[in-house]
Every structure is written in C-alpha cells, then in structure tokens.
C-alpha cells in the first residue's frame, strides 16, 4: 500500500546521522506498518492476559456483581481470613492439590523420560515412528473425551468390569470411588500426555554428538554405562527446565479434568484449589474469598518458578531465563 519513498540504505544512513530524538521518530515512521500489523494481536494479549490482572482487586473488596467492581466497598484483608485462619474446606482443597501434585511429580514426570530413552534406543526407525504416532494421539483429545473414554473402559458398567464378570473374576470399583480418585487422575494424565511429553526429550537426545557414544564404546563402556554417562547428561538441562516449569504449576492440577469428575466422588476427595475458586465464586457467589484464594495461588506460583530458577542458577544450569 504505502511505498517507501527512498531506498533503504540511504534512509538508514540518514538516520545514523540524525540526532537521537529525530531518529526515534524516523524509526516510528518507518515501522508504522509493522506496528499496525502487530496491533490486533497485541490488543488481544493486553485485553485477555494483562487487563484481567486488574480483576484481582476484588480480593480486597466485598464484590457485589450487581453494583460492579468499582463501587463495591473495600474490605482490606477480610477476604484472606478463610485462608489464614485455616478454613477446613480451603485446607482440604490445598491438601488434595498438594497430594495430586506430588503423585504427578513422582509418577508422571519421570515416565516420558523412560519412554523417550526406550524410543531413542530402538534400531528400527519405522517401528519408532509408528509408536510415536500412536502415543502422541491422546494429547489432542480434550479432557471431556478422555474422561468419557475412561468411564466407559473402567466404570462400574464399563468394559473392564463386563469382561471381569463374564469370566467370574468379580469387579473393581474405580470410577466414582473417592478412595481411588487421585490414582485415577494420575492414570488419566499418564494416558493422555506421556507420549506427547517425550518430544522435548527426544529432541534433546537427537542433539547429542554421536562421537561421544563412539568414544565411550571405545573406552569399553557398556550400553547402560553409555546411557548413564552420555545420554542422561545430554538431556539434563531439558529435564531441569521442565522440572522448574512443573514446580511453578504445583498448585494447579487439571481444572477441567477434575471439575468433570467431581459430581461422581464429591468434593471431599476431589476439591482442589482451582475448583474451590470456581465453585465458590461462580457457583456459590463468594467472590471476594475465592478471588483472594486465586490471588494467593498465583503469587505462590510465580515465587516458586523464580525460586526454582534461582536454585538452577546456583547449580550452574541455565534455567528458564538467563541471569
């Protein structure tokens, strides 16, 4: 549409000679179309990522939906009462969150590394690609689909139980059983995302210099020794990076996944921080208290990421960002 009126080189030379202020205005003029391109996307990011942060203000207000945010009265730290005085419902949500997170850290986090090591050691390239195509697939299914599939496979009238009763093997109660709920959540995450999570580890393994393996073999290292001394150090920084990101998410465990299955097992076993915030606010109308819990959760998440990153730096790793 608008055509530059002079060649680029000449313009840049003129710019270099100009005083800084005019140079800035010149750059603005030169790049105004690029900026215009960025504008719609930038607007969306500001509107739906940064502007909502202002909404946290209702954590300090007695928010009444019909008077609006601005006119609701300030109440100081009253909304944080429930959190710091140890409200039973809140503590239950917190402990469920931490238990599920811990289970995920122990069982979900290492599994993709093991699968990636297995895949990486395969000789047949075709078999490897076939396995990858199959294992990546569940990642693209929504939680509604995954939960529905699990119910129909493992539910009381599901495929597993109908198979067991056909062979007179009794039955197992998995779905809708509060004492199995956390294990079920972990199993679903494993089924859905283990394959997908191998991608980053496989990418890191493919960047390891083959000469290292040759040198190790010449030195008489067995395959297990090569795994220990070459492959694992090769993916160490990726593992640490992902562990840091995971730590920042320690207080968020699958909102969609859990809210879908809450009805069947009740809040005692299944309430986590995110569902507590959602149920209390949108469901029960306790806006201020829920917003306070959400705010505390968000702040702790940021502190955890920054802290873990700091620790990574102390151990000489790169972490999420450089110092």
């Amino acid at each position: 549409m608008v055509v530059l009126d002079k060649p680029v080189a000449a313009e840049e030379a003129a710019e270099a000679a100009a005083p800084p202020k005019r140079r800035r205005r010149g750059r603005l003029r030169r790049d105004r179309l690029l900026l215009a391109c960025a504008l719609p996307g930038l607007g969306v990011i500001l509107l739906f990522h940064y502007a909502p942060l202002l909404g946290h203000v209702i954590a300090f207000k007695d928010y009444q939906p019909y008077i609006g945010i601005a006119d609701s009265p300030w109440v100081g730290l009253d909304n944080f009462q429930a959190i710091f005085s140890g409200d039973v419902v809140f503590l239950n949500a917190l402990s469920n969150t931490l238990v599920i997170s811990l289970l995920q850290l122990v069982f979900v986090f290492p599994l993709p590394i093991a699968v990636a090591l297995l895949l990486n050691s395969l000789v047949s390239e075709r078999f490897k690609r076939l396995v990858q195509s199959v294992l990546y697939l569940p990642h693209f299914m929504s939680w509604v689909i995954v939960v529905a599939i699990f119910q129909h496979m493992l539910g009381n009238a599901g495929m597993l139980n109908s198979f067991l009763s056909d062979h007179d093997l009794g039955s197992v109660s998995i779905i809708g059983n509060p004492s199995m709920f956390k294990e079920l959540i972990v199993a679903q995450v494993i089924w859905k995302d283990t394959g997908w999570s191998t991608i980053l580890f496989l990418a890191a393994m493919s960047r390891i210099d083959p000469a290292l393996y040759e040198a190790a073999a010449v030195d008489g290292a067995s395959r297990l020794r090569q795994l220990w001394h070459v492959t694992l150090p090769g993916i160490r920084s990726v593992v640490i990076l992902l562990a840091i990101l995971r730590l920042g998410d320690v207080l968020s465990v699958g909102f969609e996944q859990i809210i879908l299955q809450q009805q069947a097992v009740g809040p005692g076993a299944s309430e986590v921080l995110d569902t507590y915030v959602f149920n209390n606010a949108v469901g029960a109308g306790v806006w201020g208290g829920s917003a306070a819990a959400g705010l505390v959760k968000g702040v702790i998440g940021v502190i955890l990421v920054l802290g873990a990153n700091k620790v990574a730096h102390l151990f000489g790793e790169r972490g999420v960002y450089q110092k």
Partner: peptide, 26 residues
C-alpha cells in the same frame, strides 16, 4: 520500533495465567 517490548509482553504472558475469576470478570 517497539518490537522488543511487545515481544517481552508476549513471552511473559506465557509464564502466568490470569486466573479463573479475573478472566470471568473481564
């Protein structure tokens, strides 16, 4: 012009999510 701060805004938006209630209110 301006590409650096916009890129930073973009990268930081990856590190945190606004939270359920603020999104609902927005």
């Amino acid at each position: 012009y301006g590409s650096k701060p916009i890129l930073m805004l973009l990268l930081f938006s990856l590190l945190f999510t606004p939270g359920i209630i603020p999104m609902y209110l927005t």
